[in-house]
Design a protein around this nucleic acid. Structure first.
Lengths: 358, 358
DNA sequence: TTGTATGCGTTATCAG
DNA sequence: CTGATAACGCATACAA
């Protein structure tokens, strides 16, 4: 599209090289049986003219664009920015280009993504919905390759990559218990929800407490619809205002935990001396907050790679009746100052440490 | 591309509606002179068949894709993630879709972006180089619409949107001086460079000190090639190790300043009691760090909007000989705890305050 | 107001 | 090994 001047096409190259247009195409596409002499003629012609294939024309003809969509809530949420980074790299390694779409976690826009015009520009979609749920399986039954990310829809008509929510949450809470904490609050719960990350991580939280012979105190459950820093700070303030006794906080993601940290700092409450904090996502920021934030590292790179691979497999063989796969990424607990205090591993900028894994 | 089944085309719609393909096209493109009855026939046929235009074909025919490229170093750098977010929104408002490309601030990849295949898929490019410089004006003289972001190339052959580097830096340092600071260090300087953000912000730094009747102490200048949290922390440690006396730090961007904050925290140095810190970019994280970080808000939204508008103007009129524009975004100083301490405006999650502007 | 025919730049199908 | 030629699906000049 871009070239304003000249728009040199295969015809021009063919003319200059004294061959047919098909031969130029053959050279371009690495066709085996070309006489070296011919090939060279064509290649110098290409170089002389500065010819580049017109991708739009190629795409039309081939019925493929080499583009895949990545639909996420928003890039200003660090986890999704880092995820996008990983997906772009993984896709690039396989010769694919990523088209990012922001849904703003608005239900309508999530539905739009599935049927919108952009789908005609992409060979497939990696979709991380935050609002759609089991009631939307019909809308998710699309006729193009798609890989779902996250835990809102299971058994849906698509390949699926999820985090190890229950086990990861369990390990996070166990990590807090190991530091001698007993009154462990949660920030980010979604009251009444039975699907999604919140519900699953809450389940891990309960199981860990039960395993430790502890009960679940509803007063320790802090709600937060959106998982942003702001909502995390608000939920933390509410918990503290309620007067409930607590010595640790499990932020259901890092943004919430960082918001909680912010609130604790504002109230001059020492972390982890008085209250320990752990988050989830292992975004880069957690290694630099004050104190540094312990967190669950959910295998972002693996998720990105797996998603791209699954998608590519569907793109390459659209008629395959291979059953839909579900991949659960490996996680790691990263212990930092917010739970370990000065015992935390070297505060050297990039160091983290795996305390448990599964 | 995506639809596997059926691939219903305009022909099918035309057949079903009992009209010609041209009429269908007319309806689709909002042609004025269509008999209402015909229009309706076509529209129901479209609905019945679930027809959607094939964008690739349309693009080939129209010679436009509706896609614009956005080339940035990497999305894991919060400023660029937030910039991408803003650009995507601005583009969407104008009916454009954004294709993000990561250069990793690697010189070769920055050059590749300019000539790569992807340029054939986009109508124009918004480019934020970190390595290219004045010596590369030739490479930047491309024959497609482009808008440059940043301050590495001036007077180049393209429209250009920059931050108010000198004045912003001057205001930042003045803000520190206003708090009574006199030994103001810098983190992120690029020794010997004469172009780019580092050089310009250093100029503002010097001018502010001069205006205050103070000299520039080279011992207070901390180098940092990459502007990441890690390098900011390292530079801060070096400054402290050097034993030089200082009561404030100007991080040339927020990542550096947050890294510095991290280093100061590790050494149990109180901010701002002992050392005040100010950054640049106003990324969301700065409103939640402990302490919250004062910063220069460089007008990200304005930059995004302006860049998209300038690009679109070039796309819409490629033959215009309108001279290349240079737009300088407005900035604001946001005073938070890292310079104002408890005097900082309400620590409510979203509040910031404009102390000066220009 | 609507239909016919042509071409956008490639790739694919055949012959040769 | 290479060359004509026909699509791919849409938009438009030109006719009607």
């Amino acid at each position: 599209m871009s070239r304003r001047t000249g728009a040199v096409t295969m015809h021009d190259v063919a003319a200059r090289a004294g061959v047919s247009i098909k031969t130029v195409s053959n050279v371009l596409n690495g066709y085996q049986y070309i006489r070296p002499a011919t090939k060279e003629k064509v290649e110098t012609a290409i170089a002389d003219l500065g010819y580049q294939v017109n991708l739009t024309a190629r795409n039309l003809r081939r019925g493929r664009t080499g583009l895949i969509g990545l639909a996420v809530p928003e890039l200003s949420l660090p986890y999704f920015a880092e995820l996008a980074d990983s997906v772009i790299r993984a896709a690039e390694a396989r010769g694919l280009t990523v088209l990012i779409e922001q849904t703003g976690s608005v239900r309508e826009r999530e539905l739009e993504v599935l049927t919108g015009q952009r789908r005609h520009l992409t060979d497939g979609l990696i979709f991380s919905p935050l609002e759609l749920g089991p009631q939307d399986v019909d809308a998710l039954d699309v006729d193009y390759p798609m890989v779902l990310l996250g835990e809102r829809i299971f058994g849906g008509p698509a390949d699926h990559v999820t985090m190890s929510n229950v086990d990861g949450a369990k390990a996070a809470v166990r990590h807090l218990l190991d530091q001698g904490r007993r009154r462990i609050a949660v920030v980010g719960a979604h009251e009444g929800e039975t699907v999604g990350s919140a519900a699953l991580r809450m389940q891990g939280y309960r199981e860990a407490l039960q395993d430790a012979g502890l009960g679940v105190d509803p007063a320790l459950i802090g709600e937060a619809g959106l998982w942003h820093r702001a909502t995390g700070a608000e939920a933390m303030h509410r918990l503290l205002d309620s007067g409930v006794e607590l010595d640790a906080v499990f932020g259901l993601n890092d943004a919430l935990a960082l918001g909680a940290l912010h609130a604790l700092h504002a109230r001059r409450i020492d972390v982890p001396e008085q209250i320990a904090v752990i988050g989830w996502d292992d975004i880069e920021e957690t290694a630099y907050s004050s104190p540094t934030l312990s967190t669950v590292s959910p295998g972002r790179e693996q998720i990105a790679r797996t998603a791209v691979d699954l998608l590519l497999a569907r793109i390459d063989d659209p008629d395959s009746d291979r059953p839909y796969e579900r991949v659960i990424a490996d996680f790691t607990i990263v212990g930092r100052e917010s739970t370990l205090g000065d015992a935390a591993p070297a505060t050297s900028p990039l160091s983290t440490s795996a305390v448990a894994s599964g």
